[in-house]
Amino acid sequence: MSLTLLAQGLLAAPEGEEEGFVAPTVEHSFFFDRIGDGTVIASVKAMVLLILGVIILCAFFLAASRKAAMKPGKLQFAGESLYGFIRNGIAIEILGKHGKAWAGFLATLFLFIFIQNIWGIVPVAQLPVTSHFAIPVLLALVVWVLYMYVGIRKHGFFGFFKMMCYIPGIPPAMHILLIPIEFLSNIVLRPFTLAVRLFANMFAGHMLITIAGFGAIYLWTSGGVTNFLLGILPAVGGIGLVFFELLICGLQAYVFTLLAAIYLESSLADEH
């Protein structure tokens, strides 16, 4: 009996074709807005959040570094901890002696991605800017251009491609197979996976929270005590997902920065 009720609740009122649960679509607030006559423009909300995030980031670090003292205050300590985390944990650990030179870029990259991810779980905002594919693509392109430029400057054009595609010390016939694979994985797929990883994680997380929210609201507004009680499940699950997203936001920003550092290191490395 109760199982049937549960199933009915979960299947969201099968009677009444038009009245059933309407899942949120990909278009609900993603990618583009439509103005009056159906013209497609960039999502206004995402662009506002993007600019706002950059302003917050700049303001925070300007404030944190303004009155730099030997004995740091709270704000300065927070700023230096964030910067030091990337500088020591990623830049110096992976890039070694080049680490200090790249620490600024990597810390900026990390904090920019982190703050644009965090918009997804900030109440009212609730839209991760990085779930718009253009933003991760731009970031991945910046990393790609940088590590190509750095590698070509250090090893020369042919030296760099030889280092990227040619594995020494294997039977000569294997090069027919391995050079295209190495080229594909090191030059083509690296920026692609970098962009897709960030985009897909934030996008999927945002859709999960949205579906949980839609489900809870649908059950609560469809009337009946059972539906109301069942609506608690997605609501609680949605809150849990928000905390899970907090973890994912930090993790994806960290992974992106780490991979950027590893790619830069592979370009800066001496020839093997």
Partner: peptide
Amino acid sequence: AGLTRTYAFLGFAVSEALALLGFVVPF
């Protein structure tokens, strides 16, 4: 732990990429 963390994240990122490719194929 600190020494192998980089490789752990690298391996994680590379194997995760396949699932993410599956995720974006419909789009």
